[in-house]
Nucleic acid binder design. Sequence first.
DNA 1: CGCATACTTGACGTCATTCAAACCGTGTGG
DNA 2: CCACACGGTTTGAATGACGTCAAGTATGCG
Lengths: 232, 232
Amino acid sequence: MKLACDTCPVRDSAACSVLSEEERAALAAAGRTRVLERGEMLFAAGDSEAACATLVSGALKVSSVDQNGTEQILALVHPSGFIGELFAPFAHHDVTAITTSKLCTFARGDIDRAIETYPALARALLRRAQEDLLATRGLLELTSNASAEARLAALLHDFAAAASDSPCHLASAFDLPLTRGEIANMLGLTIETVSRKFGELEASGAIARKGKRGIELIDPALLQTLSGRLSE
Amino acid sequence: MKLACDTCPVRDSAACSVLSEEERAALAAAGRTRVLERGEMLFAAGDSEAACATLVSGALKVSSVDQNGTEQILALVHPSGFIGELFAPFAHHDVTAITTSKLCTFARGDIDRAIETYPALARALLRRAQEDLLATRGLLELTSNASAEARLAALLHDFAAAASDSPCHLASAFDLPLTRGEIANMLGLTIETVSRKFGELEASGAIARKGKRGIELIDPALLQTLSGRLSE
DNA sequence: CGCATACTTGACGTCATTCAAACCGTGTGG
DNA sequence: CCACACGGTTTGAATGACGTCAAGTATGCG
């Protein structure tokens, strides 16, 4: 499918937003849009010709599978995020849709060429890479030291921030983008522990559960306290 | 101090190696070399005008301090590595020398200008950022699921690889670049657990300890097995 | 209606932490 | 030269948090 940049919801926030109209059109000629349903993979660890992509809508997870066969979620990708290891000969991780996702994909060679041709694009991708690095280090801080309760509280806090429109406010109610199992994989816990801690957070009055996925923030300040983070 | 690129040990591997002689000279005019002793900080979390730097020799750690006051090591930087958050208004983490380190530092404004002027430099930094991302995700995989023994075994394996000259061989003996406390902070463990696991690794015949810092690899294959990693 | 998938809950075991004490190499001062 | 203190390390015993195993409860889909 051809790209339709004109109506793209992330045209002002994705990496390609730094290009001029003509440059964008030239890049778009090489790209293809693709839709992935939940569970479909963009590429798997080990793929040698893994595509690169900008996420237009939906959500992806970056994960790996260790020798025990358990999945470990390393990052979530939100709309306008960029996926792709530009300099590695093969992909190191799996990338999978966690909700129906629309992507703008490019062959590696085309992206390589675009980076050479449009220096601004290289700078934009550099910026994204540094932001990804920061996010990954945040997850690392979380999973290394904190208790199970603190990890879950912090993750809920992040989800509430991501679900909100404005960058500085929390959404007071939102749906979990992940299953319990995925939350557990992300936080380095088990499903059972996550489930128990959800119960404890609800009992403590920090949150309320609405069905399986719905979360309502009753006491955001308490959640923040439990997460063990200073108010940022 | 002025830069002396001609005799720089990382002149062929650092980000600036992609520049031509003239370009490098122009960039060097803006840079300053700096030496940090163990424990000295390049910059601290929150600094608004944190410098950027290429590490010439020695080793650095990137760390943050959580509200309990415990340090969490997020990454190690080896020679030819680049440090600096180019797009953030302030530094998010501390950067500290763990051995006497020689750096090539640049003001943020100068680096910003260089990235605009030399597209190849932006691409080189993009590559480094993606490699850093990969390394951080590796540490994330390690600390999330693995047992204390597996974490330590994997870290020792990495150190052995880093201490070796050739990228595919392990050094058979090397000195630990970190104290027990730093290893513990890096792996999300306590000093006591690290010390115990060192004892168990030695008892199992995988390694031998020579003094406080020295490590000799007796059975690298066993170490790999204990680390729970498939042979890569 | 029946099965599958996701989630919850309980009892029990295990591994890492915690608290406490001893150890060791090094530098300092008597 | 020895006594001493100090930082880093080792070791031990007890506690506790999370994992494991196992059963039971929704929710949804064919």
